[in-house]
Design a protein around this nucleic acid. Structure first.
Lengths: 192, 192
DNA sequence: CTTAACTCGTACAGGTGCATACGACTTATT
DNA sequence: AATAAGTCGTATGCACCTGTACGAGTTAAG
């Protein structure tokens, strides 16, 4: 993103490096929010100096990784069929996005240590709005409960996903049953 | 714990220091899992060298803080009335322990970075067993669901508590409604 | 082919945190 | 009052991570 505003050209080669770095950042930070710049560069198969050539500091790198994860999320969400009862839409939505959200929790933790809270909320605005809209619609249909704050209903889904990812990683939940368990749990929480 | 096996006496003065250090460790690490030894010593109103006189290294200190938190947990749990339907027992149990568990999540995160996973599980064996027993009893009574692994049902409660603590700390959940929200959420998850 | 962009190693400076060593002062305990 | 235990400052060594500087080699793009 260094030579973005100059109007100058950017070599294809650099483009590839940036992509590999961002990808490696997402992977490393998802495993360990305290992963060092050096770890990430190594994982990207790139020298640390090359990384600094594209990202001035750790903060910029994490922001880019975050933005990339959110972009991937938006992409997945936009392909979900939103027609029909809220219950079913929710199931479809979870089926296609639970693993992505789950894997990004550690990345989010890394971001929280570096970026201001406002910036993070701002980046999440899109996806959060989508989920909130769905919950509200479910409430109006009488399918979802109304005895708790909407903000809580939205966040608790996040925490359940986080937990499922953690349990799966630790081997206490079989990968093939994680999806089913997540969906059943979330439905129980939201159901009226 | 340095002069534990020597059979020698320990001064009352040192006993007080140790208590203050462990208490400060719980408090600091609960706010920031990466709090430094120096931070903890300052919070305890004690020199860093005094701290090292009682705990050889960071790992030993964290283990002591963890043990203290769990001891407090055991104490609270042992006072809960276990008679009656599992539903009601669960409510009583959450009412008296949710805040404690919630506050200890960051401390747990600190421990996970230093202690082997096996040691942590071992320390949690007592409380975990208690909750698991209750869940199993609820299942036998027909009050709790049986379509998910018990281990998941037990852990998801933890994650909900963690989430509630986080949301409350961030000001997105009013402190006076946190208890109610937690209990309602957990009951929805466990109910058959 | 020429040039500018890119890669990447080495080196350095600044900061932080952990852990140990030494020594002097203070306080509980008998 | 005497002694051992405890407190605590200063200094030191080590390891790690961040970010910058310089410079030489490599490669894409015109």
């Amino acid at each position: 993103m260094t030579t973005a505003s100059t109007g100058r050209r950017r070599r294809a080669d650099a483009e590839r490096s940036i992509a590999r770095i961002v990808s490696a950042a997402r992977e490393c930070l998802s495993r360990d929010p305290n992963a060092s710049i050096d770890d990430i560069a190594k994982a990207a198969g790139v020298g640390r100096m090359t990384l600094y050539g594209h990202f001035r500091n750790r903060k910029e790198l994490i922001e880019a990784a975050m933005a990339d994860a959110l972009r991937a999320g938006e992409e997945v969400l936009s392909e979900v069929d939103l027609t029909g009862p809220a219950q079913e839409v929710l199931t479809r939505l979870l089926e296609s996005s639970w693993s992505l959200v789950a894997e990004s929790t550690a990345l989010l933790a890394a971001a929280q240590g570096v970026l201001p809270a406002g910036r993070i909320r701002e980046m999440h605005a899109g996806p959060a709005q989508r989920v909130e809209d769905l919950v509200r619609r479910g409430q109006e249909e009488g399918a979802f409960r109304t005895d708790m704050p909407i903000a809580w209903l939205v966040s608790v889904v996040q925490y359940v996903l986080h937990g499922a990812a953690e349990e799966t990683r630790a081997g206490r939940l079989k990968p093939e049953e994680t999806g089913r368990v997540v969906i059943a749990t979330v439905q129980s929480i939201l159901a009226a």
